[in-house]
Structures are given as C-alpha cells and as structure tokens.
Amino acid sequence: MSSDRDFIKRCLKNDKKAQEELYTRFAPKMFGVCLRFARSSMEAEDIMQEGFIKVFTHLKDYRNEGSFEGWIRRTIVNTAINFYRKNLKLNQEMDIADIEVPNSQEVSAIEKLSAEELLDCINELPDGYRVIFNLNVTEGYTHKEIGKLLDISENTSKSQLSRARQTLQKKLKGLIK
C-alpha cells in the first residue's frame, strides 16, 4: 500500500515516467474490462482512453483506502456505464420461468471455449443486457447495487440479466454445435 502511495504521489507531481508506469501496470487488465463492456474493440479503446484520463484527473481524490486496482477498475466500469447510458433501455421485464436452461453437456462444451470466443458473444449482446451481465457476472455487483447504479428496479435488473443469459445461451449453442 505504501508503495502505491509513493507511486501516486509521483504521478501527482507530474512525473511522466510514473504516469506511464501506472498505465502500463494496469492497462492490460483494464482493457479486458473495457472489451467486455464495449461493442467493439474501437469502442473499448475509447472507453479505455476516457477511463484512464478520469483515473489521472481524479487521482488526487484517491484516499488510499482499499485497493488501488479496485479504485481504477471501478472508475473504468463507471466510464463504460456512462458511455452506454443513453442506449440503455432497461424498462422491459420478462417472466424468468420461460427461459430454457442449458444441459450439462452444453455447459461442459461451453467450458472449453476460449475467452475471446466468449467475449465475442458478450459483445454482440444489446447494450443493456451486456452492461447488466458484466456488472453482475464478471464484476460481482448485486441486483440491488445495479439498480441503484443505473436507476432501475431490482426486478428490471434481474429480468435484463435473464434475457442476457438467454441470448448468450443461443449464441453459445451456435458456437458449440
């Protein structure tokens, strides 16, 4: 933690080397986050760019409480949410019981797919599905937290996640056939 503190101090003192180091250290992981939230690698690049500018401009606000990586990750996720906020149409709800579930054979076939293949499936999801799927499944937000973050109800978040899963399932089935 103390090394992070020194590192941040150097960045705030406009030490260009430290700033570049910060970017190099966290860029691969954060670009992975951006790719999951984005529709394409071009948009992921835009989110990454805006996100890191936000990270640097808000760096002085970081309180050294909690992990530095966690703080950067949250900033990148928020940037991604804002990027797509206009396109989020999250008012449809659906009956979760109507959804088909994959069988165990399909599940094991899905396990064999690469991260890039799974990423392609996520990228093709509509913005609302993709954001909620990512927030819940890969970022670990609860529906209550997603609801507060996106100003939607918990039920909307749940139903959007179900739709996202259903759509993903169809795409994955197509891939494993």
Binding site: E20, T24, P28, F31, G32, E45, L118, L172
Partner: peptide, 25 residues
C-alpha cells in the same frame, strides 16, 4: 455458466492498442 465466464475473464489481460498511451498523455 456464470462461473465459466467469471473464470475465463479472471486473468484475461489482453494487450491494449499501441499508441493509446500517447493519446491519453
């Protein structure tokens, strides 16, 4: 399925595009 996604992306660290740092800088 969620777990599969979570695990696959846990250590997923692709290389960021070249020249992105220059743009940010």
């Amino acid at each position: 399925i969620d777990e599969i996604f979570r695990k696959k992306f846990e250590d997923y660290e692709p290389n960021p595009p070249e020249g992105l740092w220059e743009k940010i800088k």
